[in-house]
Amino acid sequence: MNFEKINFKNTAGYELSGRLELPADRHPHSYAVFAHCFTCSKNFSATKNITRAMTSAGFGVLRFDFTGLGDSDGDFADSNFSGNVDDLLAAIDYLKEHYKAPSLLVGHSLGGAAVIYASAKADSIKAVATVGAPSDTKHVRHLFGDQLDAIVENGEATVQLSG
């Protein structure tokens, strides 16, 4: 496997940190973008393992840190689902401009929900794969704890997740 460290800007002007993994013995037959889970990064072990298996199968795979996570600029506290989708579209545009437009989006957990949404906005995408993506928000409702009433009443609240 070969790789290149890359950086690209999203529409908000933040620099996002990525890693493009390429097959070791051939040119990629296709390109893909991998979206990590909610509070993970491009270096999460599952993300690395999946992208490396994909490069072994001939894909070029861009994995990157969403705004405010890992090595990317921005403040995670100011990020949201729409921003993650915008980050994915910026990653797609980067590949399209510098390599070849990706035809596959892969997402883990909330990254899976984001790739589903982003796929409808990117003409080059022919397939989407998700790993443990939520189909409903009920499974995270308990994370809001005693702030759920404030969220319903005010439309927002500060919630502490994972410390």
Score class of each variant (00 low, 15 high):
K42S: 00
L69T: 11
L22C: 02
A53Y: 04
H27Q: 13
R52N: 08
N10R: 00
G83L: 12
V85N: 12
A57T: 11
F76S: 01
N80L: 09
F64I: 01
S17K: 06
D73P: 10
T11W: 07
Y31R: 02
P23F: 15
G18Q: 01
F66V: 06
D71C: 10
M54W: 11
V33Q: 02
N80G: 03
F64E: 02
G68I: 14
D25Y: 14
C40Y: 01
N84Q: 12
F44S: 01
L69E: 07
N80C: 14
A77V: 15
N10F: 00
D73R: 03
S72K: 09
T11V: 13
V85D: 05
L88K: 04
G74M: 12
F64N: 03
L88A: 07
Y31T: 03
G68N: 04
D75M: 03
T55E: 01
N2P: 11
L62E: 01
G13K: 10
R63A: 09
F81R: 02
T55H: 02
A77Y: 06
H27S: 06
K48P: 06
S41T: 08
M54H: 05
L69Y: 05
R26Q: 15
G13H: 07
G68M: 11
N49L: 09
N2R: 08
S82R: 13
S30G: 11
F59W: 11
F38A: 12
G13E: 09
F44N: 03
F3D: 00
F59T: 00
C40D: 01
A12P: 00
